[in-house]
Nucleic acid binder design. Structure first.
Lengths: 131, 131
DNA sequence: CCGTATCCGGATGGATACTG
DNA sequence: CAGTATCCATCCGGATACGG
């Protein structure tokens, strides 16, 4: 029941309140691997190994785990080809593509403003030392 | 040095590669508390206690820690009033407001599509049991 | 090739108590 | 009021080895 989730807000959900569905959605999204895997799938259907190579540093464990969560939440579709050697492909659903556009903006933002933030961190650091 | 950060991509940064600045920015953003605190600050300047009440379930520890990170990265400005009882206010910087617009879209999306995801999870669950 | 299984250290974050 | 300090369970996530 979400009746205690601020019914006066749009869609009857309020991410600021724990136990609201939208809050748990936010928790799911709050993962760098989700960002990157969704980003890697945005251009189109990809195989497991392609994803692993695209998302540098992700371990099989985290890649599989992330893909499973995305599949469970209806953002990614998984297709298995019964061939040898095995071939498994992943692609975004409509819902997933919808989200990917938003996440992509965040990724672009983080690339655009990386210098600003690097400077801010540097200033913060020297403030600690001298001030 | 970011010379190994895909110089052919815009801004010379590539979030898909570890050790790239934009990757660490993504890591910072990948936190539900960052989402919520930035969202709570979006309407305007807020006191510590106001934030704590707005973001349901956040502990003093996590609130302080989150605010410090946001301050360090130049997204939030902190102002202390030397009065008794203490009064401390937080507000978004220009950079922070810029980001807040994006994060807000994610929050809205998570509220809009919460039902879809709830259904997807339910379907995934019954698939496990029966299939 | 596409995963699963296992181990394990360190970080995360919750609860609680306390202070200027 | 606005934090800090401390304890502690949990989980996250990395490395590695192995399996269908």
């Amino acid at each position: 029941m979400d009746s205690d989730c601020a019914p006066d807000t749009p869609f009857g959900y309020d991410a600021f309140r724990r136990h609201c569905m939208s809050h748990t959605v936010l928790e799911m999204l709050a993962s760098k691997w989700v960002y990157l895997v969704v980003g890697a799938l945005k251009p189109g259907r990809r195989r497991y190994g392609e994803l692993q190579r695209k998302v540098e540093g992700i371990t099989p464990k985290m890649l599989t785990q992330t893909l499973r969560v995305l599949e469970r939440d209806g953002l990614v579709r998984r297709e298995i080809f019964p061939v040898i050697p095995p071939r498994v492909e992943y692609e975004l659903t409509d819902l997933g593509r919808n989200l990917a556009d938003l996440l992509n903006q965040i990724r672009v933002w983080s690339e655009q403003h990386a210098p600003d933030i690097r400077d801010a961190r540097a200033r913060s650091l020297e403030g600690e030392l001298t001030g």
